[in-house]
Design a protein around this nucleic acid. Sequence first.
RNA 1: CGGGGCGUAGCUCAGCUUGGUAGAGCGCCUGUUUUGGGAACAGGAGGUCGCAGGUUCGAAUCCUGUCGCCCCGACCA
Length: 506
Amino acid sequence: MAKQAKTAISPTRDENYPEWYQQVVRKADLAETSPVRGCMVIKPWGCALWENFQRVLDGMFKATGHKNAYFPLFIPKRFLEKEAEHVDGFAKECAVVTHHRLEAGPDGTLVPAGELEEPLIVRPTSETIIGDAFSRWIESYRDLPLLINQWANVVRWEMRTRLFLRTSEFLWQEGHTAHATSEEAMHETERMLDVYADFAENWMAMPVLTGEKTAGERFPGAVRTLCIESMMQDRKALQAGTTHFLGQNFAKAQDITYQSEQGRLEHCWTTSWGVSTRLVGAMVMTHGDDDGLCLPPRLAPAHVVILPMTGRADDPEAVRNYCHKLADDLRGIPYYGRRIEVEIDDRDIRGGEKNWQWVRRGVPIRLEVGQRDMAADSVFMARRDKSPKEKESVERTAFISRVHDLLEEIQQGLFDRAVAFRDAHSVEIDSEDAFREFFAAPQGEPTPVHGGFAWSHFCGDEDVEQRINDELGVTVRCIPLADGEAGTCIFTGKPSDKRVVWAKAY
RNA sequence: CGGGGCGUAGCUCAGCUUGGUAGAGCGCCUGUUUUGGGAACAGGAGGUCGCAGGUUCGAAUCCUGUCGCCCCGACCA
């Protein structure tokens, strides 16, 4: 039959990348759209995945001295009004609560009543409400640094949304810190960027560039914004995390002051930083293939799924027992801060369909276990990072002793593959013509995948940056933190300190 | 906020031009045969046709209004 060529996800990445992405999110059971415009329902499989992101990141924040706290969902309007740039940045996309009661209207409807004296804003981010607390918590240099994180949901009223990548409501963490000196705050900004890069590369197996945003891409109210940028499989860039050096902007607007050792009243230097459920989307687009999701083992909700093949077994119960014993043995093995997670799928549906469901969900290792395997004291293993056709019989105890290393091999393989992909589509470009050529969509393809990361010299002129964005839809993704050689701007011929990374972006 | 499009079963949609008992595929339930690569057959459940008016003996279909959603732009993690 022609089924051999059939992929689990349709369309494929080549055929229609954006649609492929939506299909993977749905077919992998990560999330679905909701009755509420722009908001998603995160399903159990997606939620389990996010919980792993949270658990690991939270541990990293604690390890760097941060404490969790929780601040209100609602922010008084006057708080947001305090920092001018901040207002400009977020005013256009805020959900505003104006009433606190519903009254019966005509025909069983409900109408808002009890208008609030001061409208409340559903937080788009919490700098202002946390800054207010900081202004009371911090009195002396002895209170510094103050290192706080919160896990929360935020709302930004987006025009166009895509599951995980951009939704009106999303889950994230936001770190907020206050320091005595500029240097210390800047150091914190860099340190947390390193944490994000570490998480992205070593847990998500997603290679990232670390860099600084240009003025145009900076967080509203920040002095400097640093970021990690990653390349998706359509060669577009995705900002996966940001850290902000806020200088004294918020401290001055919100009166966050401390008394120094010399007894003088000084303004604090603050930072903020965050990553969101967008990371889940980033992971889908970094590792997913035409058969669905492909999970890096260190974050996978399940490492191994056992599929008991009991259909034609003489003694189905014996096969099940064999599977459960195997699961128990595997669950005893430590793996990156937890145990090997095992699912046994004993649902009464056909083996083929069942198998493909787990392929789509991206579980690193699938084990088909039937009478034959039991008789041979072995398992029939398939790896998600290889073709669904490639399966091999492995002796049971050998598998158990190897599984940890196998997962590590898959983790490393995913990272290497992603690095190779990014490098294959990253080029140094030294003329504007070549630059335009690089980002020109090929003719005749419905959803042309093209371009990539262009490393080019740039003088930093904001008007030029804007013009390139208008004409090509290409922006400076970041000015890399790593050292680079000087040169001349490919657009203006003016001197340039180093190459910057240009790309189309999400 | 501009410019298009669409609301009919859980999902994807047909039916509407030319009014006459509500349809298909997928999914779901039951049974049988199957079961180590995406099952077949048989039976079954499931819809105030977005909502409100109007025209008509009769409206998913025609008219008016209204609400919602999607796509393309401008804006964004």
